[in-house]
Each structure stands twice: as structure tokens, then as C-alpha cells.
Design a protein around this nucleic acid. Sequence first.
DNA 1: CGCTAATTTGAGTGACTTCAAGCACAGTGG
DNA 2: CCACTGTGCTTGAAGTCACTCAAATTAGCG
Lengths: 237, 237
Amino acid sequence: MEGRMKNLQNVPICDECILKGHRIFKDLTPEQLDTVHFGKGCSVYKRGNIIYHEGHRINGFYCVQTGIMKIYKTGIDGKEQIIRFAREGDIIGFRSVLSKELACTTAKVIEDAVVCFIPSENLFQLVRENPAFSMQLMQLTCRELGEANNFITDIAQKTVRERLAEILLILMETFGLDAKKVLQVSLTREELANMVGTATESVIRLLSEFKNDGIIDLHGRKISLLDIPALKKVSNM
Amino acid sequence: MEGRMKNLQNVPICDECILKGHRIFKDLTPEQLDTVHFGKGCSVYKRGNIIYHEGHRINGFYCVQTGIMKIYKTGIDGKEQIIRFAREGDIIGFRSVLSKELACTTAKVIEDAVVCFIPSENLFQLVRENPAFSMQLMQLTCRELGEANNFITDIAQKTVRERLAEILLILMETFGLDAKKVLQVSLTREELANMVGTATESVIRLLSEFKNDGIIDLHGRKISLLDIPALKKVSNM
DNA sequence: CGCTAATTTGAGTGACTTCAAGCACAGTGG
DNA sequence: CCACTGTGCTTGAAGTCACTCAAATTAGCG
């Protein structure tokens, strides 16, 4: 009863979510949308909260309403490797659900978030009933796979300097800049390092260099991308 | 007419392929199997031949009957980054078909191969008609995505030495050993380097070291994995 | 044809350089 | 005050370059 109340209360927000959500849900019939609505549950997560844990079974996937989270794997000595970020409209955790494996990544909140949970059973039902939806989902995973392949090539062949420049550009793509060209996401130097696949100190030094070269500007965690063509050049794209 | 003859002629072989092929086709109805049979075309490729080319549009996917090919991306200065290998029973090229993007990798034959081509239209039709098939396909891509994530973490965090040891173990998983513990795939040092993401010379030096340590044995391109537990230890798994 | 000669390709070594990791420590600011 | 940022210094891993050697291909040519 309590649960139902909660769901009802959240429907208006999630309505938006489902409509925007990666256009993944755009091919659902009204009835199918209702099923998703009825089955889901929304939760609020604070910075630092973990949505799902590497190595655990997850029995559904998540649709991000608001907030930002990092999706990472834990490698040697517990060092995080950030695979990607998720933000408004992204869906996370579906890889493990579909492949019926344990979660191979952890999702941790970086900026306070509202996230919907949709049980596996509903996902499987949609796949069974709606080929257009399956197609959307496949396209999503295939695009992610393509990006993963790019990332592998970059990390294997580029220098740390090139990769850092590239990551800054990717973050720009994902989170955008404000009027003052400030990246609209706040990451620690360590988190940047865990994306680039390098040491925190290296990130700090290279960011300083970029700043000295007038390519970026730094104010704490606020990074302004002043000269994007120069960044592209450094990133060797 | 010529085409039909060719297909008929190849049906017996492909029958096998479709039955074995990653169990991807296991949920097809007899009629659907027939459609695939009728639409496909088989070709023989020699070592060095390219099956599809990075950046090109491909209008179908491939099912490997026999032979081995490397799937790679071209990075800085034309340096190859091998993403994975494909062998008997694997399907390749479907990522680009499903995501409707250009091919992001190249597939080049390492050992003479027989490969079937199945047009996109047939693939899309199967996705439309057969949810169980869609599910299989999704599971395949999701598993690949999981592996890609692992690879990213390894390449970002492990040393070249650790990665080389790991790659040898992965090659063992994929291609097996013979009675004399010889890896059943023949790669140049450069190809090994392009998997590990390092310089050819580094691979040569490290292989010598492994040999001196009694972990492996070398006879040209034949690599014997003498001490697998030791390899696992070096690979830091 | 058949049999060298010439060229290419891959494996391997050594010397040198450089990038980036690691450590220690000093600010700094929420 | 503790996590985060920043700096200097050192060391080591791995990349680069230059070269040799062996095997495999291809060309040349009587």
C-alpha cells in the first residue's frame, strides 16, 4: 500500500523519464507503458550512494531521472576504472539483466539522483511482446559496444596527455558547458584519473600544463574549456 | 541461377554452421532457418583477405564456418588494435548492422576461412518475428560488452607483462592447446603486440623472459604454455 | 622450367630516451 | 580537520631507434 502510494506519487516524473529515456521506450504501446509504470519503483539517492554493486545479482534495470552517477569496475588494488557516466535519460544495469550475469560494474552517485527501478520481468516481457523495443535496446547496446571498442584503442595507443584531452571533450559532449565554458560536471582529480586510466598526480600536472597553455582554465573542480580546437589537436583525433 | 546453385551446394556445410553458430540460431523455426539458408551466400577467404573494412557500410553480417580472423581497429599512425578474434561458429559484423552505423572495425583473415554472409534484411526480419532470437542476440552483445569493459580495466591498470600473460591465457581459452600444450593459433609477434597494446619489441622481450622462467616455450610462432598456474599468477587475476 | 639471386618479412638484441608512476610532503579549503 | 589539490624528486617500465640474422617469397635468367 505504502509502495503503491509512492509509485503513484512518482508517476508524473517518470512519465517524463520514460518519454525522454534514450527514446528506448518510444515504441511501447500505451498498455505496455502502463505495465512499466505500474511495475517500477523510484528512489532518491545521495552523493556517494551505490545503486548497484559489482558482483551482485540485479533483478532489474534503472532509469535515471536526474543526477549523475559513475559506472566503474574495480581493478588491481581496488583502483576504480570508470567505464562511463550516466545522467538524466540514461538507463543502467540492463547489460547484466539481459546477459543474465552478475553485475560487472558498480554504479555510484556523483550528484544527487532520482532513479527508477524496473524489474527484469517487465523488461523480458517487453522484449517478448515488442520487436521494435528489442531493436532499440539492441541498438543501444551495440552503440555502447562501439564506444567501448574506441575506448580500448585509445587507452592502448594514446598517451595520457592525449587521453586526458579526449576525456575532457567527451565530458563536454555528455554534460555540456555553461556560458563561461565551464564543464557542467564536478569530478575530483582522482575520478578524472580513473577515467583516463592514470595516476591522480599525472592528471593534476597535465591539467596545469593545459592551463599554462591557455587551453583550459581551472577553479577548483570547475574546468573551463577555453580552446576546444586546441584540445582536439592535443587529443589527436 | 548461378547464385542458387552456389547456395544449394553450400547448404550442407551451413546447416552445421547454423546449428553450431553460437546457438544464436537455436530458436529459429524451420521456416526461418530456410529463409536464412536461402538468403545467405558463402565465400572462401585466404589469409590476408579482408572480410569487411572499417568505415565502410556493411549490409549484412557474417557467420564463420572455418578459419580464424582478427577483428581490429586502426588507431594512431595506422597501428592496429586487435579487439578480438573470430573462429568457427562466431558471428561478426552484426554490431554495425544492428546499430546502423558504419563498421568500426576491420575483419582480416589469419587462417584461411569459409564465411557465410547473411543480409541485414533477414536479420531484421528475424528480430521482428522471433523474440527468442532477439534475446539471444542481445545476450551475445551484452556479453561482448562485459568483456570489453574487462579489457578496458585491464589495459588501463595492468602492466604490459601482466597483460601479455593474460592474453596468452585468453588465447588458450579461445583456441585451445594441443597435446604438447602448444597454442592452436599462429600469430606474429606484432599481432600479439597489437592485442596487448604494446610495442613488438616489448612482446619479444617478455616472451623470452617467460621462456627463461620456464613458464612457456617458444618455437617460432608455436607457443607452448608449460605452466598455466604461473601464467595466471603473472597475469594478476 | 629449375635453380640461384634479390628482396621482403619477421624475430631478436642492445643502447638510449622518455613518459608516467610512486613517494614524500606542503598547502588549502569546505 | 580531513579529504583533496598541488609540487619536487626519483625510479622504472616501456617506447623508440638502429641494427643483425634467419626464413620465406619473389624475381631473374640461363
